[in-house]
């Protein structure tokens, strides 16, 4: 999928777009449904996400993210915009005040072969406690304090579970844990 998305960016290839649509649109719809969108809205936003993918394809950098990661960020931002009716503040790498990586080679995250599979495996191996707070972070809009209240846990416990899960994710990606 990542190679196809790179093709889409380079050639504006409609055949590549159709394959990407068939793969990603139903996953984006599923993600939005889990976040509480109605079926009609999830359908609309999934289509909108695919249009955004087409329009912004030039901005996709296969060295920095896989296609599924990039589509996830598009879906996430559309959802915040449309459902929460808020802006999603993001940094701008072209801003003169932006501080670039000191050592681009050593510092920048590079996507490596097999990374998606390793990551999925790592996510399935999280402890039940860690998996629960990860799910609540990605599929609800709850701040840590509300997650803590709902689970009847001290705030510090929720935070440390999330930090441990994040260490597992870093480990699977080959970064420092």
């Amino acid at each position: 999928m990542t190679a196809l998305l790179a093709t889409l960016a380079a050639k504006r290839d409609r055949a590549a777009f159709e394959i990407l649509f068939v793969h990603f649109a139903p996953r984006v719809k599923s993600y939005l449904l889990r976040l509480g969108a109605s079926a009609a809205l999830a359908d609309d936003l999934a289509q909108e996400a695919m249009l955004t993918m087409w329009r912004k394809a030039e901005l996709f950098d296969p060295a920095k993210a896989s296609a599924s990661t990039w589509v996830f960020t598009i879906a996430r931002n559309l959802r915040i915009d449309a459902i929460r009716r808020e802006r999603r503040p993001e940094f701008d790498p072209n801003d003169p005040a932006f501080v670039p990586d000191d050592e681009p080679q050593a510092d920048a995250r590079m996507v490596r072969e097999g990374e998606d599979a390793r990551l999925r495996a790592a996510l399935t191996k999280l402890s039940a406690d860690q998996a629960q707070v990860i799910q609540m972070s990605f599929f609800s809009e709850k701040p840590h304090s509300q997650i803590a209240r709902e689970l009847g846990l001290p705030l510090g416990t929720v935070k440390s579970r999330l930090r441990l899960a994040m260490a597992r994710i870093k480990g699977a990606l080959g970064g420092e844990a």
């Binding site: 139903p26 984006v28 719809k29 599923s30 993600y31 296609a67 990661t69 990860i134 994710i169």
Partner: peptide, 16 residues
């Protein structure tokens, strides 16, 4: 890295 986890979760979702 956390966004990559989001990508993996999206990829593993049951398609609708």
């Amino acid at each position: 890295e956390a966004e990559a986890a989001g990508g993996a979760i999206l990829e593993g979702d049951r398609p609708v």
